[in-house]
Simulated scan of single mutants.
Amino acid sequence: MAHHEALPVFADVDTGVDDAMALVYLIASSDAELVGVASTGGNVDVDQVCRNNLGLLELCRAGDIPVSRGAEQPLADTMRTAEDTHGPAGLGYAELPAHDRKLTSYDSAEAWVRAAHAHPGELIGLVTGPLTNLALAARAEPELPSLLRRLAIMGGSFDYRGNTTPVSEWNISVDPEAAAEVFAVWGRAAESKAIEPHQLPTVCGLNLTENIALTPAILSRLANAAEASSVAMSVLDARGTRSVADNPLIRALEDAMRFYFEFHFDQGEGYLAHLHDPLAAAVALDPGIVATRATTVDVELTGTLTRGMTIADWSRRWGREPNAHIGVDVDPAAFFDRFIERVGPFARRLVHS
């Protein structure tokens, strides 16, 4: 592919196994320059997310990318985390290298604003965790929607079941108020013509991301692309079997994914894992890899059974301007090809450089 200037990307993550895969994808992508990482509590508490983000940057031998600590609590709710899904430290069985990297002196909301002002009109935003930090950033800098080139969000579930309650997706359900606020802010910017349609968030909900099912066979393709000697995982393996890959990045990803496979298996979904966040990372760099429909999205905050539900007004009953592009279709094979052709050679170079 022809090389243009790398796109500046700011990633707000609650790392987590699939967030880790998303960060590695961004770092491995030559068309992206990761200019900042915001840590948000979600899959695990915010301090553990910070540790995971710093350790991952070290594992990937990334340059001095600023990592910020985000809000400790959602805007209105009490914090909930998901160690059962991601492991006690958030990265399954993976162990991260020691390092002396430090967090920024400023928090994640300010990190968003700084990055947007450093790359006005160019910055690509990605959120794969709750939207708390982004909501706080937009309060601090109301021009934020117009400062971003585009925004990709992993969250919600459209005409599809939830994964936290029957109707709500995890990232939204952790902080529904923040999600509602973000959609409202971008909606007002659209109404006032402060932003172009392409600056509306592209939302990758469960209806899209649950199509991205990673299997042991696909993970083996990644190890092969990295020229890492590894053994394909199997549902018959003892729980917690550690990767024997001779590549430290592949080993960490396999150890993280093992826990995720086991979790999905226990949920009755098979020995596989849904790569929600890496899909959103790929969409941030290239929105064309998913089919989308523009619509108005809002978040239910008060429903007894439906709090955290994301509602898309497909039939324009609210009479409001669209505030989002909802992902409605994706080609999983094309996504995995792209993921493997970026992350595999990157992992190989880490060892052979």
Score class of each variant (00 low, 15 high):
residue 316 R to I: 05
residue 254 E to F: 09
residue 340 I to M: 02
residue 321 E to T: 15
residue 255 D to M: 13
residue 306 T to K: 12
residue 265 F to A: 15
residue 289 I to Q: 07
residue 303 G to V: 11
residue 268 G to M: 10
residue 245 A to R: 01
residue 294 A to H: 10
residue 256 A to W: 03
residue 298 D to Q: 09
residue 290 V to R: 01
residue 253 L to H: 05
residue 289 I to T: 02
residue 254 E to N: 10
residue 321 E to D: 12
residue 254 E to K: 07
residue 296 T to Y: 15
residue 306 T to E: 04
residue 280 A to P: 00
residue 292 T to M: 12
residue 272 L to C: 13
residue 318 W to S: 13
residue 283 V to N: 00
residue 291 A to C: 03
residue 281 A to C: 10
residue 290 V to G: 01
residue 335 F to P: 01
residue 250 I to H: 02
residue 291 A to Q: 14
residue 301 L to N: 12
residue 255 D to K: 13
residue 318 W to E: 10
residue 330 V to M: 12
residue 300 E to Q: 14
residue 250 I to C: 04
residue 242 R to Q: 11
residue 335 F to A: 13
residue 304 T to N: 05
residue 276 H to C: 15
residue 290 V to Y: 11
residue 312 A to Y: 03
residue 327 G to A: 14
residue 256 A to V: 03
residue 338 R to P: 00
residue 260 Y to H: 08
residue 329 D to V: 01
residue 263 F to C: 05
residue 303 G to R: 10
residue 340 I to G: 01
residue 322 P to A: 13
residue 299 V to Y: 00
residue 334 A to S: 11
residue 327 G to Y: 07
residue 332 P to I: 03
residue 273 A to M: 06
residue 289 I to W: 02
residue 300 E to C: 14
residue 261 F to W: 06
residue 247 N to A: 11
residue 254 E to L: 10
residue 266 D to L: 15
residue 246 D to E: 03
residue 295 T to F: 06
residue 242 R to S: 07
residue 242 R to P: 01
residue 273 A to R: 07
residue 286 D to T: 08
residue 323 N to Q: 09
residue 321 E to R: 14
residue 294 A to K: 12
residue 270 G to E: 04
residue 339 F to E: 05
residue 263 F to E: 12
residue 278 P to G: 11
residue 342 R to K: 15
residue 265 F to Y: 14
residue 339 F to L: 12
residue 315 S to Q: 14
residue 285 L to K: 03
residue 260 Y to L: 05
residue 277 D to S: 15
residue 334 A to W: 02
residue 277 D to V: 08
residue 282 A to N: 02
residue 259 F to L: 02
residue 253 L to G: 01
residue 306 T to I: 06
residue 271 Y to M: 09
residue 243 S to R: 02
residue 319 G to C: 04
residue 268 G to H: 04
residue 331 D to E: 12
residue 309 M to H: 09
residue 285 L to G: 07
residue 278 P to C: 05
residue 305 L to C: 08
residue 338 R to Y: 05
residue 288 G to S: 15
residue 266 D to H: 07
residue 291 A to G: 07
residue 289 I to P: 00
residue 301 L to H: 06
residue 259 F to K: 06
residue 335 F to L: 13
residue 258 R to C: 08
residue 242 R to N: 06
residue 333 A to P: 00
residue 291 A to N: 10
residue 308 G to F: 09
residue 281 A to P: 01
residue 334 A to F: 01
residue 320 R to D: 10
residue 256 A to M: 10
residue 325 H to T: 07
residue 290 V to P: 01
residue 248 P to L: 04
